[in-house]
Design a binder for these strands. Structure first.
Lengths: 189, 189
DNA sequence: CCATAAACAGACAGACCTGTCTGTAAAGTG
DNA sequence: CACTTTACAGACAGGTCTGTCTGTTTATGG
């Protein structure tokens, strides 16, 4: 029986864990399943990640960085701010539909994490605050009054979160469409 | 050693489980802890509830009925619709603060429940749809055009959900205040 | 007073969990 | 070829989980 050694166990683990955490939740997936699906040994896992919690942090950090890139591109684009916002909601809609309405990875993870996982909680806060900043900047591109722009940005943040959450709970897309319509009204006064 | 028999084991279990499920999440609490804190025997538990899942359903049903009562009272009150809505957000704010920003029990439970728990998922949908209807009715009291009232009711629903969710994630109250301000604007055009 | 229902106590099975450990095999590097 | 790094294989400990089972005790209604 030949034993082939595949490189990049760390990345394979992160990739696999990401899919599983997203689909079934952090608490619903075990290390054993992750390493089995990733095709690695348990010893390899603990060589790269000191614990399951640290793997979760790495996952959240990874998807945070990907979304940060997208947002930078969108902010710098030459479209009208309202069009950018609409495109952003379009992306959310496509994401939710194609992933089976699994909702926001951060909120889902936060629902099962308390003060006993400070690293995870910190990643969630970091991402959420960053989302808030992004939406404030986007609002600022459409609204001259900076105080009003911050207020609208915060509203967009809350609305976006609710759309994601309720699309997940109801397995329906209308919350996103309702949110997009409301957001559009805020950006063209 | 005297063995005292306490009546109403079923209710004590439901009460205790409700607190624990709410504080630490459905998946974070085990039967053993519930019966220990409730002061009952395991056999007593399984005499009343066939499974942990059925206990969770009973819990969600119980808090759903309590909130339905509150909503009926609020809808029937003689205040102005905008005042009712403000009062509703006030209640949400107080609830979140006093409970340590634990968020929405339904959304939290939904984050760790998939198609393997159909009863739980059904309870969540039922409550969320009922919340949507409540807010549509409240909107209808302020907005004559029934189509517009439904649209605003749906927006209120999404906004309310986002406020609850992000207050939980950030452990801050401003999402609720932002949502209340936005909601107020919708109700006085 | 006796029969029955409801609650108690707690052991047990069987599965799963995280994390540790020992040892081996393959690849890269000098 | 020797040496080091990386990955594989899998047993193991120690714990938790749900759910079942046996048997005992208390209260209540007829």
């Amino acid at each position: 029986m030949r034993k082939l050694r595949k490189p990049n166990a760390k990345e394979r683990i992160l990739e696999t864990a990401g899919e599983l955490f997203f689909q079934r939740g952090y608490s619903g997936v075990g290390i054993n399943e992750i390493i089995e699906k990733a095709g690695t040994a348990k010893a390899s896992f603990y060589q790269h990640y000191p614990s399951k919690e640290s793997l979760c942090e790495a996952w959240l950090r990874a998807i945070h960085e990907r979304s940060e890139e997208e947002r930078s591109l969108l902010l710098a684009a030459s479209e009208a701010p309202a069009a950018k916002l609409a495109a952003w909601f379009d992306r959310l809609e496509e994401f939710l539909v194609s992933s089976g309405f699994r909702g926001c990875p951060y909120s889902n993870t936060g629902a099962v994490s308390d003060e006993s996982c400070p690293g995870i909680v910190a990643e969630i806060r970091r991402h959420k605050e960053s989302t808030r900043v992004f939406l404030r900047r986007l609002a600022a591109q459409a609204i001259p009054d900076s105080q009003r722009a911050d207020e609208i940005g915060d509203r967009l943040f809350v609305l976006y979160s609710g759309a994601t959450s309720e699309a997940q709970n109801l397995k329906e897309i209308w919350p996103v469409q309702v949110a997009r319509a409301a957001a559009a009204e805020w950006l063209e006064p």
